[in-house]
Design a protein around this nucleic acid. Sequence first.
RNA 1: GGCGUCGUGGCCAAGUGGCAAGGCAAGGGUCUGCAAAACCCUGAUCACGGGUUCAAAUCCCGUCGACGCCUCCA
Length: 464
Amino acid sequence: MLRIYNTLTRKVEEFQTLEPGKVKMYVCGVTVYNDAHVGHAMSAIVFDVIRRYLMYRGYEVRFVRNYTDVDDKIIRRAHELGEDPHRLAERYIQSFEEDMAALNVLPPTAAPRATQTMDKIIEMVQGLIERGYAYAPGNGDVYFRVSKDEDYGKLSGRRLEEMMAGARIEVGEMKEHPMDFALWKAAKPGEPAWDSPWGKGRPGWHIECSAMNLAELGEQIDIHGGGNDLIFPHHENEIAQSESFTGKPFARYWVHNGMLQLSGEKMSKSLGNIIPIKEFLRQREADVMRMLILNSSYRAPLAFNDEVLDAAEKSLERLRSGLKPALPGANGLSTENAQALSAQAEATRQAFCEAMDDDFNTPLALAALHDLVRAINTARDQGATDAQLAPAQAVLRELTGVLGLRLEKVSRHSDAAPFVDLLLQVRNELRKQKNWALSDLIRDRLKELGVTVEDTREGSTWHW
RNA sequence: GGCGUCGUGGCCAAGUGGCAAGGCAAGGGUCUGCAAAACCCUGAUCACGGGUUCAAAUCCCGUCGACGCCUCCA
């Protein structure tokens, strides 16, 4: 039985879907005014792993991730660059999708955009006004009336009275209550604008997610995800809008990932300490990022630095070692040892699922995989043939695949393989003649070209 | 100030009442012409101080420290 930590109740709960066998899942995407950074990658990977595991468990998952393609920051940036805001947004949507593909994050079932959900947004705002949850003071803005919503604050665990201190009203706003927030914002001259019953304007910060949920997934969903910095005010406001509009509980499970920490601080645009995904991928493989994330609980803050990245890289290499072929001259496992290997494969699959069932405990799941790798490597050392290794290696591929790891390196050098083979044949003759100087030279030079040679008594193997 | 999360070996990290997973690094060993890989072995009074319990890393109280949110943020 799968159990998930729910931010709404602050407890680990049994996972039960609204509809048997089906999961409706919404994750807050990005505001597209810049290249995505590794913090976005963390969130994307966390929810990708959750989605993949749900699929592995047999659920049909409908996964929606939105694009915020109109807001103040996009408009400001477009103005700075002298670019049309819509084109700017489009450009960064493309960039984001490239990054996600490179990170092996599965494409969402649907990727709605705020600008394409305008009818639904206006419908919701209007509905909220009719039900008394919102008001249009006449300046072209529409605000949500927090005092009308008795359980406002239930997700973030705050009360309205406590929030008063930090609240402030901007110049030009006409709010009844400082914590009221904009559902619709009047457009200033030159800004992107849509017609509405309240004049030309654009949606507020939170309503688009409520509207897109309604449009893509319906009134109620199973899982709502995002970074834990979105709990307040974004998700709090989303709940307020959605539940006030439909009168029904919105999301059953609220799931939030912890923040990436750069030198002890959260990585964020306002702090300026961001590392774009594209820059990261120039330095390291995508799977290194994924390994780093899998190595700790998705809810905890995650330190991001060269030291932990190096460790993640090595740990990934170790998982890969399990997929290496049999040794040259392998003459088969004893029945006893063969049984031990298949027993470990089965034990690992079970341990993996138990770990993942416990609120996606990926560090524990990885530990199970490392146990399997050790068993495979031991079997190989004991003389297992490729055929004998294959079933356990298939389990390793299956489970790492659930985590979204690609153990097989994508190699563009495959054309060169026959030549490396030839070179090693010649080198093997040199070794038989004990010409160590020349055979070591070949090994060193190949290493410089990215080919690692490993010798055994029976012969040599190599890999990129 | 309010709300919340957390402090486990050199580093990352699981475990949340019953002998402290796993990875990285380090040291020793097996194998090897050497190297690499692989395998084996070695290590923690669980921030500190009280308390509850037959039993506490795990529960309670206090202290210190770190981080997040309260303003756009994955």
